[in-house]
C-alpha cells in the first residue's frame, strides 16, 4: 500500500520583485515528499486556482494539484481540516509560515490540533520505518536533533531542509489543476491595525570609560578580563585534562 503524503502549498512572494512565486518553504516541503520512494503525493492549495505561480509546484514533478476554491482573505483552516479528514494522509507536510497573509506560523499547529496529530516543527529530513517516522529536526547553530513519532504526523519545514529542485516549464504546463468546490469560509480578520512594517533600531550597547576601556570592550575582553584560569607551563597531559574538564563542566562535550 502506497503511503499517502499531503503537501500543503501556498503562493509566495519574491522579496525584491514582489512577484508571486512558489513559496520557498512549501517548495522545500514538497522536495522532502518527492524524495520518499513510492509515495502517493497529494498537493493541496486553498485559494485561487487561476494563480499562475501555483504551476511552479507542478513543474517539480507532481501530476496534479488540488485547489480548494476559497476567496482571497478567507480563513482556510476549516476547509483544510475538512479536506484532510476525508483524505486521512499518513504524513502532512507544509512550510513553517506563509509569505503572504497573516503568516503567523500558527496554521500548522491549529491544523494538527484539529486533526489530532502530533506536530514537529523545523524538520530537515525524515525516514519512515514500519509506521514510525524518524525525523531530523534543525536546531540553531547547524545542529540536528533526532525525534521519533508514530504516523500520522504533521511536519513543518523551515530553511534548514534541502533546497527544492528546479521547476520544469513543460511539466508545469502539463500538470493538472483540480478545482474542488468547498462551502463558504469565514473571512480572516487581521489581528490589529495593519501598517507597513517599520525597521526597528537595534539596541545600542553603550560603553563609557576611557579609550582603552572602550577598545577592550570592543574586543570582548571587558567581560572576562582577569577572571580566567591560567596554567603556566603545565605538563601536556595536565593541560589536556584541564581543557577536557572545562569543556565537560560547560556542557560543550558530553562525558
Amino acid at each position: 500500500m502506497a503511503l499517502d503524503i499531503a503537501v500543503l502549498v501556498s503562493v509566495g512572494r519574491h522579496p525584491a520583485s514582489a512577484r508571486n512565486r512558489r513559496a520557498v518553504l512549501d517548495a522545500r516541503a514538497l522536495e522532502l515528499a518527492l524524495n520518499v520512494p513510492g509515495a502517493n503525493i497529494h498537493l493541496i492549495h486553498a485559494g485561487d486556482a487561476d494563480e499562475p505561480a501555483l504551476r511552479e509546484y507542478l513543474g517539480m514533478g507532481v501530476e496534479r494539484l488540488s485547489v480548494l476554491g476559497v476567496p482571497a482573505h478567507a480563513d482556510v483552516l476549516p476547509v483544510l481540516v475538512a479536506h484532510l479528514k476525508a483524505l486521512r494522509p499518513a504524513l502532512v507536510l507544509c512550510g513553517a509560515a506563509a509569505e503572504q497573509g497573516a503568516g503567523s506560523g500558527e496554521l500548522p499547529y491549529r491544523l494538527a490540533a484539529a486533526l489530532g496529530m502530533p506536530i514537529v516543527p523545523a524538520v530537515a529530513g525524515f525516514e519512515l520505518h514500519g509506521g514510525r517516522a524518524q525525523l531530523a529536526q534543525a536546531l540553531p547553530r547547524g545542529r540536528r536533533r533526532g525525534v521519533e513519532a508514530a504516523l500520522p504526523v504533521l511536519l513543518s519545514v523551515d530553511r534548514a531542509a534541502p533546497e527544492p529542485r528546479q521547476s520544469a516549464y513543460a511539466r508545469a504546463q502539463r500538470g493538472q489543476i483540480e478545482r474542488i468546490a468547498v462551502p463558504a469560509a469565514p473571512l480572516w480578520q487581521p489581528p490589529g491595525e495593519e501598517q507597513p512594517a517599520r525597521k526597528r533600531p537595534k539596541r545600542l550597547k553603550l560603553i563609557s570609560g576611557s579609550g582603552a576601556e572602550r577598545m577592550r570592550a570592543a574586543q570582548g575582553a571587558a567581560a572576562s578580563a582577569g577572571k580566567g584560569q591560567l596554567l603556566v607551563q603545565p605538563e601536556p597531559a595536565a593541560a589536556a585534562q584541564a581543557i577536557y574538564d572545562y569543556l565537560l563542566s560547560e556542557g560543550i562535550l558530553r562525558g
Binding site: 572576562s224 582577569g226 580566567g228 591560567l230 607551563q233 601536556p236 589536556a240 581543557i243
Partner: peptide
Amino acid sequence: AEMVKRADLAIVQDAQRVMPALTRLI
C-alpha cells in the same frame, strides 16, 4: 599574549604538545 588575557582558561604551553595529548585523552 592578548589571547591569554581574553581567555577563560589559558594554558601557556606549546600547542604541538597539547594537541596530541588532548586527542589521546578524548
